[in-house]
Design a protein around this nucleic acid. Structure first.
Lengths: 246, 246
DNA sequence: ACAAAAGTGTTGACCTTACACCCATGC
DNA sequence: GCATGGGTGTAAGGTCAACACTTTTGT
C-alpha cells in the first residue's frame, strides 16, 4: 500500500473500471451449459459474452455479480441471493478491453437446470441463452479464458467439496447427483460405488423420508435427497484414472 | 458487460483504484512467518500491513505484485520473477479503504527461508520484517482477513498440489519438506509414511545423485532432492484426523 | 556409548474396485 | 416379457497408519 498515485486525488490519474463477470454453469441433458449474452453494442457487438457489468460505486464485486445476474436472467432477487456464487479469479491484463482499463472480477455460479431465460423478466433477458460449454468459443474479450478457468475449477472442486449439489434442484436423486459428476468430468462412474461413497460422507446428503420420484419415466422410482450440512468431502471423491495411476 | 457508466468517459465517474497486495509466507524455525511492512503514512500510519501497492496504468495486477515485492524487500528482480505467485482473491468491499474506493487483488507468495530483509536493497526494505503468522494481528485495512484467507488456502493446497516445494530451497531434504507440512498444518506426521508417499508420487521430487547434507549438526546426513516436474498430487496427501473420521 | 536424525520393513485395518445380482416401474 | 434405471452384496486387491528396527553421524 505504498506509492499512492498523485496524493490520492481521485481524478488526477487515468482511472480503472471494475467489472464483475459470471460464468453461470448448469447441467442439462448430459451436457455442461453456460449462460451467454449476445452483446448489443461495440466492442464485440453481436458476439456472445459472459453476463456481467460494472461494479457501482457503493457495491462490492459480489453484489454487482448478483445484481447483474438478476437483471440479465430475470430471476427473482431472492433466488439469485440464494445461489452458490464463488469468486474465480481477477483478470487484469492492461489490454483486455479496447475501450479503457477494465479489471474484471470473475465469479462462477452453479445453478440447477432451469427454463431458457427468454422474455421472462428483465430487459436483457431476451438476449440470454444457455449454450453447451464445449460450443462456446469466440467469446467477447477474454471470456473464453474465464470460461475455461471456471470449468477447470469446478471440475477440481467436485472432488473435495459438496459443490455438486449446487447443480441439483432442492430435492434430487442420487442418479441426478451422479450425472453431475459424470457430465462435468466427462467420465462414467460405477453407480453402486458412487452411491456408497456419497452416503458414507456424513452431511453430504440427507434422505427425504418417504419421498420418491420417477426419473425418465422408466425404471424404479428413486429416493429423494436434500443437501446436508457438510461442505467438504473427506475423503475426496477422485476422478477415475485421470492421468494418475492408482 | 452491460450498463457501462456514462458512455465510457474515463473521468466522468468516481474512479476505482486497484492495488495488488501480497501475503508472502515462509517457514522459519518451525513457525509460519509472513512478511509485513510498517506503514509510514496515514491511514493506519505506524501499523503493520501486507506489502503491496497500486497497479500502474500499463501493468497487470500480477506485474504490480512482483514489482512491489521487489521494491519492498530489495530482492533482485530475477529472484522475484521466479517466485511462486498465486492469485488468492479480490477484496472489493466499498469501505475497505477510508480514502477512496480501492479494490485489492491479493496474491500469496511462498518463499524459502531467507535473511531478514533489512537495509538490503530498495528504500522500503528497512521497514519490512518477518513476523510469525500467529502474532500478526491488528493489521491495516482488511489485511488480517487476507492473511487468514492465505493461510487457509495454502494449507488446503498442500494436500493436493506440490506447493510445499515452494517453501524449500532449490535442493532440500525430505525432513525439510516434511517440516513444511507440519508447520503449515500444525500437526506432526509419521516420517516413514510421509517419505513413502512423497517418493511414490512420480515427479514430486527428484533425487540429487550422490548429494547429502547434515541437518542440525547431528544425525545421519540426509539425501538431497530437487523439485520434479509434477504439479498435482494424486492421490492427495491428506492432513491427519482434521475433524474428519476415516 | 549415547543421542539424534535418516531410512527400511512389516502387519493388520481399512477402503476401493469391479462385477454379480435383485427390485420396481413403463411399455 | 423386457428394457430401464434404482438399489444391495461381496470378494480381491490396494492403500495407509502404526510401530519396530537398522544406519550413520556428532559428542
Amino acid at each position: 500500500m505504498t506509492g499512492a498515485p498523485a496524493g490520492y486525488d481521485p481524478r488526477a490519474f487515468e482511472p480503472f473500471a471494475v467489472t464483475a463477470d459470471l460464468a453461470v454453469l448448469t447441467v442439462r441433458g448430459g451436457q455442461l451449459h453456460v449462460l451467454l449474452i449476445r452483446r448489443g453494442q461495440d466492442p464485440y457487438a453481436g458476439a456472445w459474452a459472459l453476463p456481467g457489468g460494472f461494479v457501482l460505486p457503493r457495491e462490492s464485486a459480489e453484489g454487482a455479480a448478483r445484481r447483474e445476474l438478476a437483471e440479465e436472467t430475470g430471476l427473482p432477487v431472492a433466488v439469485v441471493d440464494a445461489l452458490h456464487l464463488e469468486q474465480l479469479r481477477t483478470y487484469s491484463e492492461p489490454d483486455r478491453d479496447p475501450r479503457m482499463r477494465v479489471v474484471s472480477v470473475a465469479f462462477t455460479a452453479l445453478v440447477p437446470d432451469m427454463p431458457e431465460p427468454t422474455a421472462e423478466g428483465g430487459g436483457d433477458a431476451d438476449r440470454a441463452r444457455w449454450v453447451p460449454a464445449g460450443e462456446a468459443r469466440q467469446l467477447a474479450f477474454d471470456h473464453a479464458v474465464i470460461l475455461a478457468d471456471a470449468r477447470e475449477r469446478v471440475g477440481a472442486k467436485l472432488e473435495y467439496t459438496c459443490l455438486a449439489r449446487a447443480f441439483c434442484p432442492p430435492e434430487f436423486t442420487l442418479g441426478e447427483l451422479q450425472a453431475v459428476y459424470e457430465t462435468v468430468w466427462g467420465t462414467s462412474l460405477d453407480r453402486p460405488n458412487f452411491r456408497r461413497k456419497v452416503l458414507a460422507t456424513p452431511g453430504f446428503v440427507e434422505a427425504v423420508p418417504g419421498a420418491a420420484r420417477l426419473t425418465g419415466g422408466r425404471g424404479k422410482p428413486a429416493a429423494l435427497y436434500r443437501p446436508g450440512p457438510a461442505t467438504a468431502l473427506h475423503p475426496p471423491l477422485l476422478r477415475p484414472t485421470e492421468g494418475h495411476q492408482r
